[in-house]
Amino acid sequence: MPLTDLIHRHNIVLLESHTKQAVLEELVCAAARNPQVKDEESLLAAILDRESEYTTGIGFGLAVPHARVDAVTERIVVLGRSIRPIDFQALDGQSVSIFVLIAVGTDQHKEYIRALARFAQALKQGSVREAVLRASNPDEIYTVLEQT
């Protein structure tokens, strides 16, 4: 199944921020436009809390900030691509350009693990990452995800 069954077209954004904190805020802001996010501040706090425990920058220019939190009623996925690579304290030390925010409700354990695994697996493929980086707008990124 393509990744687009996990993400809505309007949740793919081009990021304007230049710092890790600002990127996370921008991603949460995009997520908060969806009705399944009840409380933007709590979601941001949960994402920052998780990030403070251990980085979600898993290498290859990819970060998957995520959280299970009461502020979300159903799974929400936001993909952001920054114009310039950002220092995200990733595990391989490289800067990050592709960000996938995944948030679920506290009791949606399976959906959480499955979404994390599918995005991590897909975006670790160099060809997919390159296609996402080459895309000039969210629609093109969506088309890439449709084929993944």
Binding site: I58, K110, Y112, I113, L116, A117
Partner: peptide, 21 residues
């Protein structure tokens, strides 16, 4: 029960920590 699903997925090796599950 809560970690069984994630346990054998190597893609999650460094993405999922105890905090998440």
């Amino acid at each position: 029960g809560t970690i069984r699903e994630a346990m054998f997925d190597v893609e999650l090796n460094h993405l999922v920590i105890v905090h998440d599950v």
